[in-house]
Design a protein around this nucleic acid. Structure first.
Lengths: 220, 220
DNA sequence: TGACAAAGTAGCAAAAGTATACTATCATAG
DNA sequence: CTATGATAGTATACTTTTGCTACTTTGTCA
């Protein structure tokens, strides 16, 4: 059998298939806590419940593209940190039919979300434990929180949650929230010393000593 | 619209869907190196090429179950360490049609693979860089290798590659191969001290001092 | 019984991590 | 113009981990 014959004989419609979706959990730090973007569902199932932005995967887009599309539809944002999280395949996770969901997590500084409509932020810790959220999305949120907490220690994902310019107190605050613990100023600064570049600018207007403004250092 | 009306109206066949497969990379340590289980494909595409064990995901099995099935079909093994790796969704990864593959990696001590037919072991490093392997499976192997190397440092996956009873030189050897570097005996023993339980048995037959035999300690 | 080989142990120095105390610089009040 | 409060930023002591070397132990074999 040649490959052409095979291709002709093989018709993918011969087999029943699960549907494939992508769900994206976008996180940001606001009001001193990690928050996650959720939308209220307009359709069955779980009508009226909160859910992660999600789309069915189109035949001509990659999974990464689908995840970016899901977030763009709700936020209007492009070019945000986006990474695959886990793929969920329980048989009954969607009452309509068999749906396999490839989940992603995204990080964005709060400032970039101002004026957004079509979705809102909710405390991630609470949502990870909530029982009234659509599908298995609270588990996805919990999974994203864990991944972030782990990855903060050995990667630079925290920088995705601040703007291009930032102060060290600001950056440390992000780390503290992601890790869920206070850090020592001096030690924190030693650790990230080679990841940052000082500018000659300072904050102003505060009722105390101004902070130096830094940028990210990306040597490689 | 009630939920029932909706379910009736919604017919999943209305939409074209990608196919979903699971591919499982089973690793073991043999001959002093990490090796991966591959099978020779009998059908198009990539007929005659080496590939990871894989199956289409059935409508009534979870992803984990599908991965276990793929490995069981080729090895006859049950109850092996198995964890999801990454989901691959490039549009052209399969020439027949759009296929999304959820990849898994598995770890098993070499002894459990003796007498296996239907698949064979190959050096993982070489296979991760090979260009003559079916689909994108060499990338999956590379991804699995990386995951293992990282995870050895903060988890106990190395124990999945030795039997229930093991000596410390044996266990250290596994660590050294997974990490790709020599370790210091004394430091290694300090580090894993609380993960192991000494037995009162020793190896014998060697031309030197016997090693004490240990078991894994799982206190929690 | 002495040589060898690998198992197992002891301990020091360098490095990394933890913790505390100090100095610097702004705004504002008096 | 000085004192005060508040946070930014620095110096330094202490603790734990890691990197490394040397030593002792216990088997086999000649």
């Amino acid at each position: 059998m040649t490959e052409e014959e095979f291709l002709q004989r093989y018709r993918s419609s011969d087999y029943e298939k699960p549907s494939v979706t992508v769900d994206a959990a976008l996180f940001t730090v606001r009001d001193g806590m990690l928050q996650v973007l959720l939308t209220k569902r307009n359709e069955h199932p779980f009508q009226g419940r909160l859910a992660l932005p999600g789309v069915f995967v189109g035949m001509h887009e990659t999974l990464d593209e689908a995840a970016a599309r899901a977030l763009h539809d709700k936020t209007g944002l492009h070019d945000i940190f986006l990474e695959q999280l886990y793929t969920w395949g329980s048989i009954d996770r969607d009452p309509r039919m068999r749906v396999i969901s490839v989940s992603y997590y995204a990080l964005v500084p709060e400032m970039r979300l101002s004026g957004m409509t079509g979705a809102a932020l909710f405390p991630a810790e609470e949502m990870a434990a909530a029982h009234d959220i659509a599908f298995d999305h609270s588990r996805i949120i919990a999974c994203g929180r864990e991944r972030i907490r782990n990855k903060v220690n050995y990667s630079d994902i925290a920088f995705s949650l601040v703007g291009q310019e930032f102060t060290l107190p600001e950056l440390q605050h992000i780390y503290e929230i992601l890790l869920g613990q206070k850090l020592y100023k001096a030690n924190f600064r030693k650790k990230i010393a080679d990841k940052i570049l000082p500018t000659d600018q300072f904050t102003s207007g505060s009722q105390h000593r101004p902070s130096r403004i830094y940028r990210r250092n990306t040597p490689p």
